[in-house]
Every structure is written in structure tokens, then in C-alpha cells.
């Protein structure tokens, strides 16, 4: 059956709420409004205000309440409207959720899931177009998921809810209306491992989230020319699945990383460094990267398009590497 990314998120949440009475959703406009992106339309009526909690504009406060509720035995899902506003909750996420276990010598567990949309590309200007998932991946103590497919959007939440540690899920806003053919039941495949979305031998293309479809599009162009590009969807940005990355690099010897975040001090830099440390003698060419240009995202369409990696750019870059 065909399903959109939005419907998939909705189904994932529904399953979670139905499976465990201790699961509840708290965030801005998740209830009466039906979800900022209409993901939770009708949930308030179905599950009631105790389980679908419309929070005031208090990102620090309700994230902290989520942490406490998780410590107290509930299974909260905190929804932060978008990654941009998660900056207000950074103290709770980093100074508590991520480190309470370690700081308490292993005594305190924070089994909390935080969901938020991420990414640019909708002409929303610099304050609403951030891509900070790679930045969050810097932090020990949390796990970072970035579902890029409808299937992952549907199934990753149930895995996140089974995890004893805080898990952040980054849902790409541009993907909400994309649709895919999926099976009746959610897939049984851990979201904490990378997946090879398309196999090939000419080059290893490493990406995640909103960039996956563009990379697959680019790979298709090369297929026409008889060149098979291998596309890795990271899915989980922390912990990184070194094994899948290194295996592919050792086989293909050429690498391009496509990351929607800024380049400096980024996830793409981290992956590149790991490849250098572990696969240096397997490389036939320097590891290349395509990232968000180092500017705040501008409003004008043509400028925004130029600031975020697009399929044609990816194609051009691959050509340069495999020429």
C-alpha cells in the first residue's frame, strides 16, 4: 500500500500510544491544532488531554518535564515544533538528558524520545531552516535518528521507545508529502544501523535524511551511463555505523559525503576523518563533501537552492571524482 511520510509518522505514534499506556506526547500544538504538520490530527479526541498534551511555549520547561517523567517511570515523547526551537531546550537535552546516567555513576536512566522536524528548502528564512542533527550527534549520551524513508518514519519510533537512553528523532519537513509503497506492518529492522539503499562499485555516496532522495536521483543518472553508485543511508547519526561505511569504502575506493548541515566542524567532517583513520590505504581519491554553504539560509528561492546541495550538484561532484 502507498503511504506518505506524514502518515507513516502518524502510524508510528499511534502504534506507540496504543502499545503502552505510559506513553504520552507533549509539545506545542500537538492537540487542538492537530500537530504543526498535521501529524497528530484527531489524536486529542482519541487519546485525551493526558496523553496528548498541548504545551505552552516553554521548550526548556516541557523538555525538562519530559526528562523527569521519564525518570519517574513514564515513557514521554517530547515533540519540539522544529529543530530551530530546540535551541531553547539545549540545556535540558545536553546538561541533563544526555549526561544524567554518567554523572550519577550509572544510576539514573532517562528513557526519553524527543521528535522534531528539521531542514531547509521551504523559503522560511534563516531562523526556520536549520539542520542541526549533525551538531547534536556531537554529544555522548544521546542517540540520533534521521529517518529518510517512509518505512523508517513509520518504524523508528517503536525502537526509540524501547531504548533505555534518550533518542532524538529528526524528521525532515520536506519529506512529509513524499510517498512510498510499504507493507501492511512496520518493518522489523533496527534504525540504529545504516542501510545500503542502492549497491554499486563506482563510488560510495554517504548521506542521510533530506538528502537521500537527491542522492538516489543522482545515482540513477549514472545508472544510465552504466556506472553503479553505492548509496548509504546512515539513518542513525550517533552512534555511527562504522562497519557499513568502511566496508563500502574498502570496496569502492572513492567517497562522496552529502550532508545538509554546514561543512565546518560537521558530521561530514567526522565521517571523512573516520574514513581517513580506517581506510586511508583503500582510497583512490580524496574523500569529498557536499554540504550546506556557510551562510544563514536566505529567503530568495534561487539563493536558498544554491545554499543547499541539489541533485545536479551531486551529479557534477560525482563526475569529478570518478572521471
Amino acid at each position: 500500500m502507498k503511504m506518505t511520510y506524514r502518515e507513516a509518522l502518524r502510524e508510528g505514534l499511534k502504534n506507540a500510544l496504543e502499545e503502552n499506556p505510559n506513553v504520552f506526547l507533549v509539545g506545542e500544538d500537538v492537540g487542538a491544532y492537530g500537530g504543526t504538520y498535521a501529524v497528530t490530527k484527531g489524536f486529542l479526541e482519541t487519546y485525551g488531554p493526558e496523553r496528548i498534551m498541548d504545551a505552552p511555549l516553554s521548550e526548556v520547561g516541557f523538555t525538562g518535564i519530559g526528562i523527569g517523567a521519564a525518570m519517574g517511570g513514564l515513557r514521554p515523547i517530547v515533540e519540539i515544533m522544529t529543530v530551530n526551537f530546540s535551541l531553547l531546550a539545549l540545556d535540558q537535552i545536553i546538561n541533563s538528558a544526555a549526561i544524567l546516567r554518567h554523572m550519577s555513576g550509572g544510576q539514573i536512566s532517562v528513557p526519553l524520545v524527543i521528535r522534531m522536524t528539521t531542514g531547509g528548502g521551504r523559503q522560511l528564512g534563516a531562523q526556520h531552516s536549520h539542520s542541526f542533527e549533525g551538531w547534536y550527534a556531537h554529544i555522548p549520551g544521546i542517540k540520533i535518528l534521521a529517518p529518510a524513508t517512509v518505512e523508517d518514519a513509520r518504524s523508528c519510533l517503536s525502537y526509540a521507545l524501547k531504548d533505555p537512553d534518550p533518542v532524538l528523532i529528526f524528521e525532515h519537513a520536506l519529506l512529509l508529502n513524499t510517498s512510498e509503497e510499504v507493507g501492511e506492518l512496520p518493518e522489523i529492522r533496527s534504525p540504529f544501523k545504516a542501510v545500503v539503499r542502492k549497491s554499486g562499485t563506482a563510488l560510495t555516496l554517504i548521506t542521510y535524511g533530506g538528502m537521500l532522495n537527491r542522492c538516489l536521483e543522482a545515482a540513477k543518472e549514472f545508472e544510465k551511463l552504466g556506472k553503479e553508485i553505492e548509496v548509504i543511508d546512515l539513518r542513525c547519526l550517533r552512534p555511527l555505523d562504522n562497519e557499513t561505511i568502511f566496508q563500502s569504502v574498502k570496496k569502492n575506493h572513492r567517497v562522496l559525503i552529502v550532508d545538509e548541515g554546514w561543512k565546518s566542524g560537521s558530521l561530514s567532517a567526522e565521517i571523512s576523518a573516520r574514513i581517513m583513520e580506517n581506510c586511508f590505504f583503500d582510497l583512490d581519491a580524496p574523500v569529498e563533501r557536499l554540504c550546506r554553504r556557510e551562510v544563514p539560509i536566505p529567503y530568495a528561492r534561487h539563493l536558498e537552492l544554491a545554499a543547499i546541495p541539489q541533485a545536479d550538484e551531486i551529479i557534477k561532484k560525482i563526475q569529478e571524482i570518478i572521471k
Binding site: N22, I65, G66, I67, G68, A69, M71, G73, L74
Partner: peptide, 14 residues
């Protein structure tokens, strides 16, 4: 402070 509120909420719900 918010974490304590979360603990209290959990105790009430449970």
C-alpha cells in the same frame, strides 16, 4: 525544577 515537575507528574499518573 522542570525535572522535578516531571517526576511529580509521573507519580500522579502512575
Amino acid at each position: 525544577i522542570p525535572q522535578a515537575a516531571g517526576l511529580a507528574l509521573a507519580a500522579k499518573r502512575l
